[in-house]
Structures are given as structure tokens and as C-alpha cells.
């Protein structure tokens, strides 16, 4: 027991070390159903769910039979206490039984393969209908860029897609590309994951039939902040989606009361990486900030998008997301306040 003591202290102590701010994300996540693969709300995820249950059932049946044999034989054939030590009969084997337990697995595998192949084709080879939405998803080191080429909208980290009616499906097709290293786009309740690889274009599609917010995140190791490359998909009925598109198309509002903040924005390094439509900011390395406040989170889901969190973020992003590629801006307190005051007008 004494040897355990340091370890126990470590375990008890770790929550204290870790009493870190979750920047409001815990409360926000708790309102969203957890991203479980067995609660699908979109056709690809649904098909996977079906084939998954089938596979699990088959495997569970095999497990019960084989594990039953193992347990039976270790109970039935254990050497009894006080045994005379006489060696049991030496059975070399049985070709028919070898044959049987080769054939049965092949039959099972055969059925599984057929089912698998059909599901692969029905998900991967689905044609893109004309009234679908097209989104370019671009993975960056540690955030997501979403571009709607047919609708003229650019946003980040929170993907908006319309609800798809089973009778009149309006699926969303995603073209996946990467600006740097390999990532993987994954929203468990909507579809399986598809890798986002530089110098290669992958596609996938979703057609959610239930409105709501769906959590996802990057699933391919992509460097320091792989863990905080989160994303959300907002599924809304078509009219709401259209309203969101219309709002996103607006240029940034110029509010005279925050002129000083805007000047700071336009005269510091911010403009090298960020876009604000209608200003000098045309950088492409960071997320488009034109409608920053329309998003619920910042830092690719690392923190809730509140003015306080924004201040912390701009002052030094590594407080929230150590290793993030955005540099600390080192502004005076007043400049920081004014800059964030400007940012919160970007609805």
C-alpha cells in the first residue's frame, strides 16, 4: 500500500493542477447531445449505423459461442486435486472439425463482405443531385474554413447546412482540401470521417433530417493543437438557413463608435491573416472575421465567443490554446479594450 501512496496523491492532485478554465465550453456542450455514432440523423451515418449493428450482432454471437467453449473447457478439464498424474489421451486433431471451423467463418465473412460492399457503394458512389448545397471545407492547422462557392459565403469552424427533408432531399456535399497537413473531417452523428489531405480533393456528403447543433472535430493527428480543432454543424430549416446566408453576405457594419478599435485592427498585424469584408483586412491565413459574432465559439471551439474570452484570446491566444499559430498581440489595455469593442460589432 505504501508504494501506492505517491500515485494516489498524484491522482487526487491532478484535478487541482487541472482546475483550468474551460472557457464556457463545458456548459455549452452539455446542452448538445453527445456525438455518439449510434444516434445518427443523416443518411450516411444511418447506413453505417445499420451495418454496424449487424456486424456487432454477428461478432457478439461468435464471442458468446467461442468464449463459452473456452470457459467450459477451463472448468470442465482442469486437473482435479489429487489427480494420479496420468497423461490424458493425446488427440492429434480432427480434419473434419478443422474443415468445419474453416468453412463456417468463410460463410460468415462472405455475408459480411457482400453487405459491406453494398454499403460502401451506396455511401461513396451517391450522385450529387442538382439542388444540393456545395461547401469547400479547407483544413488549416487547427481550424476549419468553410466556403460556399455557389452562395458566396465564407465562414469558419461552424458549418451551417439546411435541413434535408426525406421527401425532397437537399443534401450538402463537402469538397475537402487542406492548406497544410492532413486533417480529417468528422461529425459522428452525420457521417463517417473523411480525411482532408493536401494536394488531394476528397468529397463526402450529409443530409441531416433533424435540426440542431452537432459536435465534431478533426480526427487525424495534425500537430500541437490537434485536440482543439473542433467544429460544429448547425442544421436549420431552409428558411433559417437562407436568412443566415443572406446575413453572411452582408459586408461588415461600420460603427463609428468603435473607430479607434477598427484603426488598431487595420494598422496592426491582424490584417495579414484575417479578412473583414469592406476593410483593408484581406489576409488568408486565419479565419474570416467579417461576421465573427455570428459564431458561438472562437479558437475552433476552444472557447465561447464572449467579449471577455475574446480579450484573453487577442491578448495571448496561447492562454486558451497553447501552440495556436496566432501570435500574442501585446496591446496596451486600452487598445485591447477598443479592439475587442470593435470586434464585437462584427455581427
Amino acid at each position: 500500500m505504501k508504494r501506492w501512496l505517491p500515485i494516489l496523491i498524484g491522482l487526487v492532485g491532478s484535478p487541482i493542477i487541472a482546475f483550468a478554465n474551460d472557457w464556457g465550453m463545458g456548459a455549452s456542450n452539455a446542452k448538445i447531445p453527445p456525438p455518439t455514432i449510434f444516434t445518427p440523423v443523416s443518411t450516411p451515418a444511418n447506413e453505417i449505423d445499420t451495418v454496424a449493428y449487424f456486424t456487432i450482432t454477428v461478432c457478439a454471437a461468435i464471442f458468446v459461442i467461442v468464449a463459452g467453449l473456452v470457459v467450459y473447457s477451463i472448468i470442465r478439464f482442469r486437473e482435479p486435486p489429487g489427480d494420479d498424474g496420468r497423461e490424458p489421451a493425446q488427440v492429434y486433431g480432427s480434419n473434419p472439425i478443422e474443415f468445419a471451423w474453416t468453412t463456417v467463418p468463410i460463410l460468415i465473412v462472405f455475408v459480411l463482405i457482400l453487405t459491406t460492399a453494398r454499403t460502401i457503394y451506396s455511401v461513396q458512389a451517391a450522385p450529387r443531385p442538382p439542388d444540393s448545397i456545395l461547401v469547400h471545407v479547407i483544413g488549416h492547422q487547427w481550424w476549419w474554413e468553410f466556403r460556399y462557392p455557389e452562395l458566396g459565403v465564407v465562414t469558419a469552424n461552424e458549418l451551417h447546412v439546411p435541413l434535408s427533408d426525406r421527401a425532397h432531399p437537399t443534401p450538402t456535399f463537402l469538397d475537402l482540401e487542406s492548406a497544410d497537413v492532413a486533417h480529417s473531417f468528422w461529425v459522428p452523428r452525420l457521417a463517417g470521417k473523411t480525411d482532408v489531405i493536401p494536394n488531394r480533393k476528397n468529397t463526402m456528403w450529409i443530409d441531416p433530417h433533424q435540426p440542431g447543433i452537432y459536435l465534431g472535430q478533426c480526427a487525424e493527428y495534425c500537430g500541437t493543437e490537434h485536440a482543439l480543432m473542433l467544429l460544429r454543424v448547425v442544421v436549420e430549416p431552409r428558411p433559417d438557413f437562407d436568412r443566415w446566408i443572406a446575413a453572411q453576405k452582408q459586408r461588415a457594419v461600420a460603427d463609428a463608435s468603435v473607430d479607434h478599435g477598427r484603426q488598431i485592427f487595420e494598422t496592426t498585424a491582424c490584417v495579414n491573416c484575417h479578412v473583414v469584408q469592406g476593410t483593408a483586412a484581406e489576409g488568408r491565413f486565419g479565419p474570416d472575421l467579417t461576421h465573427l459574432m455570428a459564431r458561438e465559439t472562437i479558437g475552433a471551439g476552444a472557447a465561447m465567443n464572449t467579449p471577455d474570452n475574446l480579450k484573453t484570446w487577442v491578448h495571448d491566444p496561447s492562454t486558451i490554446k497553447p501552440g495556436a499559430l496566432m501570435p500574442a498581440m501585446n496591446l496596451s489595455q486600452k487598445d485591447l479594450d477598443d479592439l475587442v469593442a470593435y470586434l464585437v460589432t462584427l455581427h
Binding site: 455514432i37 455511401v123 463517417g192 493527428y221
Partner: peptide, 17 residues
Amino acid sequence: LTGIMLAVAPFDWQLTD
């Protein structure tokens, strides 16, 4: 058996990584 589950490519799209 979990290997068989991972071999079912569509299931693997959810499970991989």
C-alpha cells in the same frame, strides 16, 4: 472480433482514429 468490425469499411469510417 473488434478487428472484424474495423474491417467493415463503412463502420471504420466512424471508428478509425
